[in-house]
Each structure stands twice: as C-alpha cells, then as structure tokens.
Amino acid sequence: MKKKKSINITSYVPYIGLALTVIVFAIITEGKTISGINLKILTNQIIVTALVAIGAVYAFASGALDLSLSGSVALSAIAGVVIGLRYESFMVMIVTTIIVSFLIALFKGVVAAYLKLPIFIVTIVFGGILSAIGLVLLGKETTLSVRSLVNVSNMTWINITFVAVFYLFALYIFNYTKIGKSCKLQGGNLLAASQLGINAKKNIIIAFLVGGIGVALAAIIILLQTKTATATTGGSVGINIMIAIVLGGMPLSGGPRSKMSAAIIGAVTISVLNNGLAVIGVGTGVVQIVRSVVFLVVVFITSLSYRTKLLPR
C-alpha cells in the first residue's frame, strides 16, 4: 500500500495570495506598508481579527455560519466597559467581558443545537440585536473612555501571548481530539456523523463556546488597545472574519476541509488589505467596496473548483 500524501497545489493558494497582497501594496505605497510604524499598526489590526477567526473556525467547521460576530464583540466590550466603570475596577471590566461573551456563545450554541432553524439566519438577526443592546448600554454617550482603568502601554507581548496560546489550544483540540475531528465530520454530513455516535448537539455548543473565547479575547484586546468603547466597536469584525476564512482557504460551509491555519493566514491577508488601502488613502466606504468585491471573487473561484470536483465518475 502506498502511503504517499498527494501534494495539492490548492493548499498553497492562500499563502501565495498573502504574499501577493503584501508585495502589491509594498510596491504601490513605495514601501510605506512595510515600514516599522505601519507594521506595528498592522499587527494590532491582525490580532483582533485572528483571535475571533480562530474561535469562529469551530462553528464554521461544524456547519454553523455565525454572522453575529460583530455584535458579539461589540456587546462584550461595551458591557465590560459600562460595568467596569460603574465599579471602577479593571478586573470587573475584564470578567464582565468574558462572562458576557460566554453567555452570548452559549445562547447561540443552544439555539443551533436544539432549534431546527437555519443558524445563519438566526445569527444575522441575533447580531443586530446584540449591537442594538450595545447602543442602549452606551446611552447618550458616543464614546466611553476607560483610560482611568486601563494602564497598559506596550501591547506587543500581550498580543503575541494571546494569539499564540489561543491558537495552539484551538489547533490541538481541532486536529488532535475527538471534539475537533467530529466537528468537521458533522459539518460535512450531519446525518452520517450522528450515525457514528457523535453527539452533534454537544459538539455545536462546544464549538460556539470556543468561539466565545475568541470573542472575549478580542474584546479585551480592543479595550486595552483603544481604551474606549464606541458605537462602532467591533463593527467590521464580522465581514473581516468571513473574508479571512475564505482567503485562508477554508470553505464557509465548513466540513472536513476546514483548517485552523485559515484563521491566521486569512486574518493576516485581510488585515494587510484593509491596512494597505488605508495607507494609500482610500476612504472607508471604498475599502468596504473593495473588501466585498474581493470576497465575491474568492468565493466564485473556490466554488468553481468545488464544482469540478463534484463531477460524477
């Protein structure tokens, strides 16, 4: 029996895409995008997207498209700030952020497991509700500052630790334990997975809870970095994650082809893209358009190769 692992060109496409994005923007901006200062800004942007994406891979892999990530990050951060300011405590702020993001994740998980509803529709609506609750909490304020509570100046090590530890933890569970492996199987074929004796309901709840860790960590990083919570906190996280996962080479429909590396590669690519466009001086409106076009193009290309693979023998 041959044990050769077939080399698949398509698995390198995300890396090539990333390299091209970096090179193109470096050339257009005459090296501004790869200058020291910009790299620091870029890193901060990557971290938030990467953290949420790592967690989101689980639900996506299980076949649950979570479109409420922006709202989840926003509400977790705003709730943390509001409660933290009331008790004037940094710890209370952090703990509140964590608890709120877990409650949101638990709710999504239970709905996905027990209500027979298309989960992406539920999360679209739910994401809107979460953002709205955030706005209600903010009240008349447009910006709540937590400079009185947060006393962190250098984010570098916190950033690296958060991403590295969470990535390794998520990667381990995803690729080397029953939980991660069965998530991928149920994303591929729910009926077949449950006939294997896989507890699909439990899995989907766990998947959303891991997603909750990502949301909590991202919300904390946002608070430490910006030291504020505003109506737009977390606003573009949702679309960034979707694009990141696709650019990272994972199908949005999840299943066995899901991979943890997509979260990191994709987060870096989309952040380089966003950041590069900003450096060029393109307005936020145009950035959104470009981002969406890139998303559609990538989805189109991946669906093309998907179709040819489905041809009958």
Binding site: K181, S182, K184, L185, G188, N189, L191, A192, A193, Q195, L196, G197, I198, G255, P256, R257
Partner: peptide, 18 residues
C-alpha cells in the same frame, strides 16, 4: 452516500470517525 459516509472527508476520517 447520504447517511453512511461523509463524502467530502477522506478514508481516514470516515473510518476513524466511529
């Protein structure tokens, strides 16, 4: 095809799934 196998998964993941 619809119940006993995850078609998009490889032989390894299908067999070890149980």
């Amino acid at each position: 095809d619809s119940e006993a196998l995850v078609l998009t998964a490889n032989i390894r993941d299908n067999i070890v799934g149980a």
